[in-house]
Every structure is written in C-alpha cells, then in structure tokens.
C-alpha cells in the first residue's frame, strides 16, 4: 500500500450537542437530590464507628453451640428451602396458563392477551413481602404464609418470562400445524412448548434460586424459616447467634445458586 502524498484528515469528532449537555445536567441534578433525600453522610458513618465496633464485638465470634443455635439454624434453613421450592413449583400451573394467554405466539385474541398481561403485571408489581404480610393476617405467622406469598408473586414474574420466551421462537412450525388444521391448544402443545422447554426449565431454576433468597426476607416479616430466626436474634440483641444464622444462609444460597447454574449449563440455556 502506498501512503498518500498528504495525510488524510481524520473525521472530526462529533461536537457535544445540547441534548447531551441537558442529559448530563439532569443526571447530575438527580444524584444531588438523591444525596440530600437519603441524608447520605460519610461523616455520620465515621463518627458512629464505635457503634459498629460494639456490634462486631458482640457478633464475633459467632455462637456455634449445636443444640441452641446451629441445629435450629439448619432446621430453619431447610424450612426456607422448602418455602422456596413449594413457592416455585406450585406457581407453575397458573404461570403456564397465563403465559400461554399472554404470548402473541399462542393467543390471537387481543383482549385475552391484554387481560393476561395485566394480571401478570399486577402479580409482579406487588412485592412478595407485601403478599406475605397479607397472608400472615389470613393464615397466621409461619411458613405457609411465605409459600402463598411466593406462589402469587412468582406466578407474575415467571409467567412474564415464559411468555417472552414463547414470543421469541421461530413461528414456522406453528404456522405449519395451523395450516394442517390444528387448534390453538394443539399448536401450543406440539409446536410452541416443545421449542421452549429448555428455556422454561432454565427460567424455572433461576426463579427457584431467587425465591429461596426471597423466602429469607419473608421470614423477617414472620413467614417462617431462617429469616424468622435472624429477626429473633436481632430483637434479643444476640448478634453472635445472628452471625451463625447468616453463615448458614450463605452456605444455602451458594449451594442453590451452584446447583441451578450447573443444571442450566447442562441444558445449554
């Protein structure tokens, strides 16, 4: 390649537009307002170091006595796992029906589609903690309220994720079966669902992972499990017990996360 006689001028940089400048100003202003709104103060944190030190002094070393702390902690963790498991599994039927109705691939009627989307949005918009507080008033304190809360919230989230997975598939096999006279349900069973099974299982495992972590928080509002034990320890100022519970929680969360990741990798999703 011969180099040209005069060096080629590189294209000019795009000048900063007023739009870019305006967006920058808005973003900076939003952060300043948020700083004030949350009373964010590194100075207060530094001044309060003594409180932190007291807390750590009481929390460490963790109380690892078997019968009083560690055994109840493991039992609590199992309940938390059970809440996450049932909350995920029992939401499958409703999530599947709503997802089929809320995917354009399987639902041609615009009104049905919009109605299903709205129900899913509502279930997703109400946090599982709020559902838990509602169900605690109905069925009392305990893990059952947590399971009910997860079923409702997870139906909304998983239904949405599944509907989106179905909308992304190749529509060819669906059209091929429609031409052959297959009904909507038959098309869903023989063309749409077989194409999305790996994605569905992957999303289900992902939601199981999330739901186990959510059920910890549900315990804090009285819906049983190890979260309930964490809450109790804090109220009794037994921070050494609390740290033990948190360590067990960490093991549980890492184990579930690893399991779900392993299976999803096998499935290739």
């Amino acid at each position: 390649m011969k180099s040209p006689a005069t060096p080629l001028a590189p294209p000019r940089r795009r000048p900063i537009t007023t739009a870019t400048a305006a967006v920058t100003v808005v973003v900076v202003a939003a952060h300043v307002l948020a700083w004030h709104g949350t009373e964010f103060s590194p100075a207060a944190l530094v001044q309060g170091w003594r409180g932190m030190a007291d807390f750590l002094g009481q929390a460490l070393p963790p109380d690892l006595s078997w019968t009083e702390v560690l055994l109840p902690s493991f039992q609590g963790a199992l309940v938390t796992l059970a809440i996450g498991l049932l909350g995920t599994t029992l939401s499958v039927p409703a999530a599947l029906v709503l997802a089929l109705l809320a995917a354009r691939t399987t639902t041609r009627n615009r009104w049905v589609y919009q109605a299903a989307r709205s129900i899913l949005s509502f279930l997703r918009a109400v946090p599982d903690v709020v559902f838990a507080l509602i169900f605690v008033t109905a069925v009392g304190l305990g893990p059952f309220a947590g399971v009910l809360a997860l079923i409702f919230h997870n139906t909304g989230v998983m239904g949405k994720l599944w509907a989106e997975a179905m909308e992304e598939i190749d529509l060819g096999p669906r059209d091929a079966l429609r031409v052959g006279g297959a009904s909507g349900v038959q098309v869903a069973a023989h063309a749409v669902l077989p194409a999305v099974i790996p994605q569905f299982v992957g999303l289900l495992l992902y939601r199981f992972d999330v739901n186990v972590r959510s059920s910890l928080v549900l315990g804090l509002v009285g819906a049983g499990g190890i979260g309930f034990l964490v809450n109790q320890s804090i109220k009794l100022f037994r921070f050494d017990e609390m740290v033990t519970h948190l360590l067990v929680v960490m093991v549980l969360v890492v184990a579930v996360d690893q399991l779900s990741a392993q299976i999803r990798r096998r499935l290739g999703v």
Binding site: G172, A176, G180, A182, Q186, V187, H190, A191
Partner: peptide
C-alpha cells in the same frame, strides 16, 4: 425452512399432521 419441531422425533412430527382430525384428549401430548 421445513418447519419441523426439531426436538420431536420424525414420527411425532408426522403424527402432528393429523392434529386437525384428532380430539383434544387424544392429542394433548
């Protein structure tokens, strides 16, 4: 683009051609 269901067997794909004349209870799976 052929449009077979790739994960299903050739036989199941061929059977799916008959869905239009099957009642739902014989064709859900």
């Amino acid at each position: 683009q052929i449009h077979l269901v790739r994960r299903r067997s050739a036989l199941d794909n061929v059977c799916a051609g008959a869905l239009g004349r099957l009642p739902l209870r014989r064709s859900l799976a």
